[in-house]
């Protein structure tokens, strides 16, 4: 895709250098497709991502792009394809365009996020009942799961929350990007990803087994066990330090 190859057009003083990655440009003639960005027709390279296509068409994205690699969920997009009644969902940064695609980004999904004190919650179903009572309205239609660009079992983690199975909520929602595509499709108006975050935080804080080694190490540090060695290392001359470094054993 064109987009991520270009340097920002800002340099003047530095003469343009040959691109190190492209020593022998041999680009084949580009195959193009027609897409409709917010209803407007644009011809874009057939191998472009949706994000690349939007930029190729001349838009400067301000909302709707974050990590550009499928981690942040800033680029939720809905689209339809010709001759197909279905609404499709995807991430603009990782979904490829298709001929006739009719698309629009949803860079922000209005969602509620109740305020809570993690220290005062208990890791059971009550937390969900109080903060996200609407999850009990789930009609098990599975639309959320179908909408998820991460292919997560979204309905199953909502069902797990209903049962108070926090470990399952954590496990099934672990790779959630908070893109909101599930939430925008849900007939029960649930904000799935926030339910997932709550489940994971409850699990991490209360249910994950605690590491005895960690507690022991924290105590050592509190008792300043490493003070002396730190002082030694910090005042050591470079060659002394170097020697110690190269002489250290490796696990």
């Amino acid at each position: 895709m064109m987009a991520n190859k270009k340097a920002p057009a800002k340099k003047k003083a530095a003469p343009a250098k040959p691109r190190p990655v492209k020593t022998k440009p041999q680009e084949p003639p580009k195959e193009m497709v027609m897409v409709y960005i917010m209803g407007k027709a644009h011809r874009v390279p057939a191998d472009a991502t949706i994000m690349g296509a939007i930029e190729y068409a001349g838009y400067q994205i301000k909302r709707g792009a974050g990590c550009r690699e499928g981690f942040c969920g800033a680029c939720a997009t809905v689209y339809r394809l010709p001759g197909d009644y279905k609404i499709y969902t995807g991430l603009a940064c990782t979904t490829l365009v298709q001929e006739g695609m009719w698309l629009s980004q949803l860079p922000v999904i209005p969602a509620q996020k109740p305020v809570y004190d993690i220290k005062k919650l208990e890791p059971n179903v009550a937390a969900f009942q109080v903060l996200y009572p609407e999850i009990f309205r789930c009609v098990a239609c599975n639309t959320c799961t179908k909408a998820c660009p991460q292919s997560l079992e979204v309905m199953d983690y909502i069902q797990a929350a209903i049962r108070g199975d926090i470990e399952k909520v954590m496990d099934l929602s672990f790779d959630c990007l908070s893109c909101g595509l599930c939430a925008i499709r849900c007939p029960a108006e649930i904000v799935h990803y926030n339910v997932g975050i709550l489940g994971r935080r409850l699990y991490g804080r209360y249910l994950a087994p605690k590491s005895p080694e960690l507690e022991a190490r924290l105590k050592e540090i509190q008792q300043k066990k490493y003070d002396k060695e730190y002082k030694e290392l910090m005042s050591a001359k470079r060659d002394v330090l170097k020697k110690r470094y190269y002489a250290r054993d490796t696990e």
């Binding site: 672990f174 935080r201 994950a208 590491s211 005895p212 080694e213 960690l214």
Partner: peptide, 22 residues
């Protein structure tokens, strides 16, 4: 180590071994 603990108390889910060590 303090950061590991702080984050866990905030609810970060660290990978653990079966014997509960990190």
């Amino acid at each position: 180590p303090e950061v590991v603990k702080w984050l866990e108390d905030l609810g970060v889910v660290w990978d653990k071994n079966p014997d509960h060590s990190m």
